[in-house]
Amino acid sequence: MSKEKSVKPASGDKRTIGITRANEHSLAALVAAGGFGSELDAAKFAMAHAIEQGTEVGTIEGTNTKWNIGTVDADASLRALIESFYGAVAEPYRLIEYLINDGLRLLDSGDVPPNVIKLIPAAKLKRVEETADGTAD
């Protein structure tokens, strides 16, 4: 699919990126609601949502591996993006993993902001349906 190259992470940085068990359902729901072609596209969307919502630098434990970083960021442009927003972090891929998981958590738990609804109209419908079912938070 993507041009997978051997991206060299900083020593100690992650070579794979994963999703926590708690976020698995959230990722699947996002893929369905957003009509994404792949889980990775949806994960990047979650990452962008976390960045946009001002998530600070952090790390997450207990993830199940999903992708190799060569798949996630073949040309290291994602790392460049992270460095643009967070400066020259020591472990950008660990941060990317954290941002993906935090974004999924935010999308699953909070009100969906208008900028997300503009891009994924079904996200709003999903909230409405859940409220109607009494399954909303």
Partner: peptide, 28 residues
């Protein structure tokens, strides 16, 4: 249309960060 949308949605995250990226480019 959904199949085509799947391809288009690959870059949806870029749209989400559009303003932030433009501001970052200015700083950079």
């Amino acid at each position: 249309k959904k199949e085509r949308l799947g391809g288009s949605m690959a870059s949806a995250w870029c749209a989400l960060l559009g303003d932030k990226m433009r501001a970052a480019i200015t700083d950079l």
